[in-house]
Computed example of a mutant assay.
Amino acid sequence: MPDPRIDVVVLTMNDRPSEEAAAQETLLAQAGVDVRVCVVGNGCEPQIVPPGALTVSLSKNLGIPGGRNAGAGALGREPDPAEWLFFLDNDASFPRTDVLARLIAEAQKRPRAAYVQPRLTGPDDVTTPRRWVPRLRASRPERPGTITTMTEGVVLVRREAFDAVGGWPAEFFLYHEGLQLAWQCWSAGWNGWYAAGIRMHHPLTSPARHALFHRLAARNRIWVAYRNLPAALIPLYLTAWTTITLTRAVRSGGVSETLRGIREGWTSRHRQDRHPMSWHTVWRLTRVGRPPII
């Protein structure tokens, strides 16, 4: 039986040459899979490209979801696109040579899983910040199970589901695009799986290091709610989220930018493409422990 084929998208701005070279080295070492790679230069010409890989050079920075869509689109236009897509941060790495093969095996056992998420750890293979655990009860990152969101930078996605829901939300530019994609997959009848026994490595960086973090995270959270939730749940979800977010911002900084993002998200919400999930989907999310009000 031939090895399963997988298309891998790597997004770059040529800003992490050593990390990117290491990431690609571990990618090319993956065994038991037939890998095709597309390196997308987000506003640049990619400088580190594996032999035989496709390249896409975007004339400007489209943001992370827009850049990933460009890579997935380029691979999809190739003859016989793979059934599986893998999105790889250019500073993430595979600690073993069987990671992709094991992720596909997990997905094949779960035909309704639109995406399969490995456990993301620091380079020590142990430390998993709470924000990298794609479910509630994040204190036990080693526990696998059904999930309703994802960690976007290292995730396996079924091409059929990705294309059916329109891919990543390019308008978001950065932050919460994984929640949007996951909720759209759930609305379409799919689900997600956290394969906690399969690890990926990533530097232990904070998203707050980006100047746009507080504003875009706040704006996009409102967009996600308005795009996806039934009208009755939007005020419940946003009240809970705003309380938590502003409390954190008061403690650690970013209040003014968070308020700016809330204002921007609220005033622009009607320009979003609204496709509210059914109450049946709300029940499905609630049943697996993540009701869409928190």
Results as ranks from 00 to 15, higher is better:
Pro95Phe: 07
Gly32Leu: 02
Ile6Gln: 05
Thr243His: 11
Arg77Ile: 01
Ile222Val: 15
Arg284Gly: 04
Asp98Thr: 06
Arg135Gln: 12
Arg248Ile: 03
Val133Ile: 12
Leu236Ala: 08
Thr12Lys: 12
Trp223Ala: 12
Glu264Ser: 14
Arg5Lys: 12
Thr205His: 13
Trp283Ile: 01
Pro4Lys: 08
Gly189Glu: 07
Ala31Thr: 14
Pro17Met: 04
Thr55Cys: 12
Ala196Gln: 01
Asp7Val: 07
Leu229Tyr: 04
Ser59Gln: 14
Val37Asp: 08
Arg68Val: 12
Ile294Pro: 00
Pro51Phe: 02
Gly153Ser: 10
Arg274Met: 06
Val224Met: 15
Glu83Pro: 05
Ser18Pro: 00
Cys44Arg: 00
Pro129Arg: 07
Leu174Phe: 11
Trp266Phe: 15
Ile64Tyr: 06
Ala240Leu: 04
Ala113Cys: 13
Trp183Glu: 03
Glu257Thr: 05
Arg219Tyr: 03
Leu120Cys: 14
Arg131Asn: 12
Pro4Asn: 05
Val56Asp: 09
Gly71Lys: 08
Phe87Asn: 04
Thr239Ile: 01
Thr205Arg: 10
Leu100Thr: 07
His210Met: 04
Arg215Gly: 09
Arg251Asp: 12
Ala70Leu: 02
Gly192Asn: 11
Arg263Asp: 05
Gly43Thr: 00
Pro95Lys: 11
Trp279Asn: 14
Arg284Phe: 00
Leu212His: 14
Glu25Tyr: 01
Gly32Cys: 03
Val10Phe: 01
Ala70Thr: 09
Cys44Tyr: 08
Lys60Glu: 15
Arg274Asp: 00
Thr258Trp: 03
Phe173Ala: 04
Gly253Lys: 07
Pro292Gln: 10
Ala101Asn: 02
Arg112Phe: 11
Gln47Gly: 15
Ile104Gln: 03
Gln272Asp: 06
Gln272Tyr: 02
Ala31Trp: 03
Asp3Gln: 12
Val255Met: 04
Phe94Tyr: 15
Val154Ser: 13
Val282Gly: 05
Pro79Glu: 12
Val154Trp: 00
Phe86Gly: 10
Tyr226Ser: 02
Ile104Thr: 00
Val39Asp: 03
Arg68Ser: 01
Ala225His: 01
Ala225Tyr: 04
Thr258Met: 03
Val155Tyr: 03
Thr258Tyr: 01
Arg77Tyr: 01
Ser93Arg: 15
Ile104Phe: 06
Asp89Leu: 06
Thr12Glu: 07
Val40Lys: 05
